[in-house]
Design a protein around this nucleic acid. Structure first.
Lengths: 146, 146
DNA sequence: TCAGAACACTTGACATTATCAATTATTTAC
DNA sequence: GTAAATAATTGATAATGTCAAGTGTTCTGA
C-alpha cells in the first residue's frame, strides 16, 4: 500500500481513534483548568459562553438537569467570572454572560493546553488544512441535538 | 483557491474546531451512558478498562485524586461491572478489571453514540482513511503525560 | 541490613456536581 | 382568558471531587 492511498479503516477503528483523541484532549483541558483554580465543569461552562446563553441552553449543552446549572452559575457569579442578565424578550429567561475576567481566565486555560497544542504542531500546513476541512465536515453532524 | 489546496487554518481555528468536535462527542457519550444507567464518570472508567489498570493509573487518566477512585470503583464493583484484583508483582497495588457485564454495557454505550456515528457516515472511504491517518499522527503527542 | 523515604490505597471531613420533585413566575395555546 | 407549557429556583439526596491522615508495602542508601 502506497503513502498516498492508505488502507481504509473500519468504522470501529475510526470511532476508537476519535474517542482516544477526545479523551486526551479532555485530560489536557481538565489539567489546565485545575491549574487556574477552576473545576472541569466550571471551565466547560466558561468555554461555552461565546455569547449570552439561557440557563436552560447551558443545561442542554452540559447534558444535565437545569437545577444543577443554578448552583454552578451561582459559584461562577460569586467569583465574578459570569453575570446573569434578564432576557429582554422573555422574562422567564436569564442569560448567562462571561465577564471580562471570565473570558480572560478561559483564554489562559486554552493557552495552556500544551499536549493538544504540541500535537498540532507536528502537522505541516497541508495536513492542517486537510484535517481542518475534514473536521469541519464532521462538525455539523455531531452537533445535531441528541 | 482550488478544492485540492484549501486555505491553511490558523492554529487557533484548528484548536477551536477540535475542541468543538470533542465537546460534541462528549455530549453524545454522556447521553448514551445515562441511557444505560451509568453516570458519565462510571462510563468513562469502563471505557478505559481495556486491560487491568491499577487504581493509581485510573486516577491519573481521570485527572483526579486517588481517593476519589476508591468510591467510584466501590460503586461499579457493587454492580458487578468491575473487579479488584491483587497485583501479583506489588502487593500495594490493586488492579481493576472490567467484568463480562461491564464490557457488554460499555460496548452498548458506544454502539448508541448516534451523532458521532452518523457524522462519520458522511465521509467516504478516502476521507475516512485520510482522517484516520491524520488523527493517528496526532494521537501520540496528545497522550504524552501532562 | 535495616531505618526512613516513597508509594498505593483507603478512610473521614467536607465542597461541588448531579438527580428528582415541587414551587413561582411568565409565556403560549386554545 | 383560562389551561398547559416553559424557565428558573429551592430542598432533599446521591455521586463526584479535594485534602489530610493512616495503614501496609516497596525502595533506597548509609
Amino acid at each position: 500500500m502506497s503513502a498516498t492511498t492508505p488502507e481504509t479503516p473500519t468504522k470501529l477503528q475510526l470511532l476508537e481513534l476519535l474517542a482516544a483523541i477526545g479523551t486526551a484532549q479532555w485530560r489536557d483541558f481538565a489539567a489546565a483548568a485545575a491549574h487556574h483554580g477552576l473545576t472541569s465543569t466550571q471551565a466547560k461552562v466558561l468555554a461555552q459562553l461565546n455569547g449570552p446563553l439561557p440557563m436552560r441552553a447551558l443545561a442542554t449543552l452540559l447534558v444535565c438537569d437545569a437545577s444543577n446549572v443554578t448552583g454552578i452559575i451561582d459559584r461562577l457569579e460569586a467569583r465574578d467570572l459570569v453575570r446573569r442578565e434578564p432576557d429582554p424578550a422573555d422574562r422567564r429567561v436569564k442569560n448567562v454572560v462571561a465577564t471580562d475576567e471570565g473570558r480572560e481566565v478561559i483564554r489562559r486555560v486554552r493557552e495552556e493546553m500544551q499536549a493538544t497544542s504540541g500535537a498540532l504542531d507536528t502537522l505541516d500546513a497541508d495536513e492542517s488544512a486537510t484535517l481542518y476541512a475534514l473536521l469541519g465536515r464532521l462538525r455539523p453532524g455531531m452537533e445535531k441535538s441528541a
